[in-house]
């Protein structure tokens, strides 16, 4: 069991085309390895969510893709360019919502700040910006430093979307938004994706808030990916099995899948297993377990299962 238990989830998304890739990407801050040999693959047109605990490297990765952090080893391609030497060009093609909701030019009014953004993005769509401003109830006369966290987020989202960039990098985009505005944001993003061909990378602790939009998932831990795969594949192959088992049951010798998480009481088990549903069900049944239910996990639940497995192995 231990050999298969060390195997990772799929990490190679195949041939592409990819909007963003990194190979062996590494970044240290002093003694801390923020990114540790990271191989990211974001397919063109994907909505890719990066999940992982605090300090896993999510924001560092996004800032590296923006050319705001210099990496020390590996290779990065963002829309065909290396942000390390074409930073300004790369940034012009990206809609970016930073983790930090404070503004660099806090003394500006919101209207002035948006004009400033429009200059940096030649494809700025003024009419679309006006519509978004209306939906987000943005007040152009307000000074940026007087905005609440949620109001700042709305201004940042508007600025990221209004130039209809080929790539959106959204770092905790729903942070600070109330329920109604978050719901409106999902609606805005759905329409945006229907109208403009866009690749989206979202980093978030609140996957459930954006899950209906997501079609690819990357699980990040300690600067490395534990897995990177289409949402449908995760849904189809990482499953929770509920089964009734005899007293003192020790499990199958060979399951044909990898047990990510075991829990349950004496005669009823709840296992999270990566593997083919039919093969795993047969493996459990042949070992004497009566499988009562098999169900997929939400992205949140999957991330928790995978990340708790890693921390168990490390301890």
């Amino acid at each position: 069991m231990t050999d298969i238990a060390r195997a990772a989830l799929p990490i190679d998304l195949g041939g592409g085309p990819f909007a963003v890739t990194t190979r062996g990407l590494a970044k240290r801050f002093g003694a801390v390895r923020a990114l540790d040999g990271l191989d990211l693959q974001v397919p063109e047109g994907a909505v890719y969510v990066l999940v992982g605990p605090n300090g896993a490297g999510k924001s560092t990765l996004i800032r590296t893709l923006m050319g705001l952090v210099r990496y020390q080893a590996g290779a990065v391609s963002v829309l065909g360019r290396d942000p390390a030497d074409r930073g300004a060009k790369v940034r012009a093609d990206i809609g970016y919502v930073p983790e930090d909701y404070r503004f660099g030019y806090a003394w500006m009014t919101v209207g002035r700040w948006l004009e400033h953004q429009a200059v940096y993005h030649p494809s700025w769509d003024a009419e679309y910006a006006r519509q978004l401003g209306k939906r987000y109830e943005i007040e152009p006369g307000r000074k940026c430093h007087t905005l609440s966290k949620g109001q700042s987020r709305r201004v940042q989202l508007l600025a990221a979307l209004a130039h209809r960039p080929p790539l959106l990098l959204l770092d905790e985009p729903t942070d600070g938004l109330d329920h109604v505005v978050r719901d409106e944001t999902l609606s805005i993003l759905s329409e945006h994706l229907a109208d403009s061909p866009t690749t989206v990378v979202i980093s978030t602790h609140r996957v459930y808030e954006v899950e209906p939009l997501v079609d690819h998932v990357g699980v990040l831990s300690e600067g490395r990916l534990l897995g990177q795969l289409p949402r449908d594949e995760l849904r189809g192959s990482l499953l929770r099995y509920w089964a009734d088992v005899p007293e003192g049951w020790s499990g199958p010798g060979e399951l044909g899948g990898r047990v990510v998480k075991r829990s349950g009481a004496a005669r009823a088990i709840e296992w999270t297993v990566w593997g083919d549903r039919d093969v795993v069900t047969r493996g459990l049944s042949e070992a004497g377990a009566a499988v009562r239910e098999v169900a997929p996990l939400s992205v949140d639940e999957a991330a928790v299962a995978l990340l708790s497995e890693t921390s168990r192995e490390a301890s």
């Binding site: 329409e191 994706l193 229907a194 109208d195």
Partner: peptide
């Protein structure tokens, strides 16, 4: 339309 339905359901238009 795909746009209308994805917007009202808040899902990815591809879905």
């Amino acid at each position: 339309s795909v746009r209308e339905l994805s917007s009202s359901l808040r899902v990815n238009p591809r879905t």
